[in-house]
């Protein structure tokens, strides 16, 4: 595998040719904000928080999906990008009902942490306060749509890592809603294996384990790293002949 040298925020870094800007920056201690990307899951490029400026390109590009290139010059933290990111976070807070003080992941929430890092101290737009359901029909977990940011990590981990595809998105635009199977209560889902991966990858308190109260829930993603590593080393996948 060949190596690429590029400049990120004024620093010269090296990366493998098939790495994305996000992952190359991450390896070098440069943290680009993101809410939908998660190492080990297929990317949706949907949250638009990891957009970066690349010299010579008119459009902003999502770092999680753009591969590195030789002599690429990337800026991840310009004032314009910061302004966009703050606005996106504000939009998320205004979209549904995010009340940190009564949330199970208070103190360990990716949305909350990112808002603090980006200096979002108030919301300049009108909160929508939609009426959304909470589904606690599953015997171990619950989903609170009020805290969901529609990042679709749960949909992707269930489909591509667990292989169950219990979750998907119904409706469109502001009416989008994560559903289990064809809109049945989670507890009655025939496809759910109760593995809990969706709960662990969820960046907010939307998916949670039952029996945890305010600020008690912590997300554990070690399984993702384990699975990805195992896959790369082909620990359990039989060698397939190329077609």
């Amino acid at each position: 595998m060949s190596v690429r040298t590029l400049e990120v925020d004024g620093r010269t870094i090296t990366a493998m040719a098939d790495q994305t800007i996000f992952s190359a920056a991450w390896d070098n201690g440069i943290r680009i904000p993101r809410l939908c990307h998660l190492g080990g899951l297929p990317d949706a490029a949907a949250c638009r928080l990891c957009l970066v400026e690349i010299e010579g390109q008119k459009r902003l590009q999502s770092a999680c999906t753009t591969k590195v290139a030789e002599d690429m010059v990337v800026r991840t933290d310009t004032p314009a990008l910061q302004a966009h990111r703050k606005l996106i976070i504000e939009l998320l807070f205004a979209e549904r009902n995010h009340v940190c003080s009564v949330c199970v992941v208070n103190g360990a929430c990716e949305l909350q942490t990112l808002a603090a890092e980006l200096g979002v101290d108030h919301i300049r737009m009108k909160p929508q306060y939609p009426k959304l359901p909470v589904d606690v029909s599953h015997h171990r977990f619950g989903i609170d749509h009020n805290r969901c940011i529609l990042c679709t990590r749960c949909v992707r981990v269930c489909d591509s890592v667990e292989g169950a595809h219990t979750w998907d998105v119904a409706g469109r635009g502001r009416n989008s809603l994560i559903i289990s199977d064809l809109g049945e209560p989670w507890g009655e889902s025939a496809s759910c294996t109760s593995c809990g991966k969706c709960v662990q990858v969820c960046p907010t308190g939307a998916l949670f384990s039952k029996g945890k109260t305010v600020a008690e829930m912590r997300k554990d993603r070690s399984f993702l790293q384990y699975i990805v590593t195992a896959r790369e080393k082909r620990l359990w996948i039989a060698e397939r002949k190329p077609r």
Partner: peptide, 21 residues
């Protein structure tokens, strides 16, 4: 546009709502 946004990316899904507002 708000009604027809697919809802995948945040700027379009939530941004059109606020602009409409």
């Amino acid at each position: 546009c708000m009604d027809e946004s697919c809802g995948k990316c945040i700027p379009c899904r939530a941004g059109t709502v606020q602009m409409n507002e």
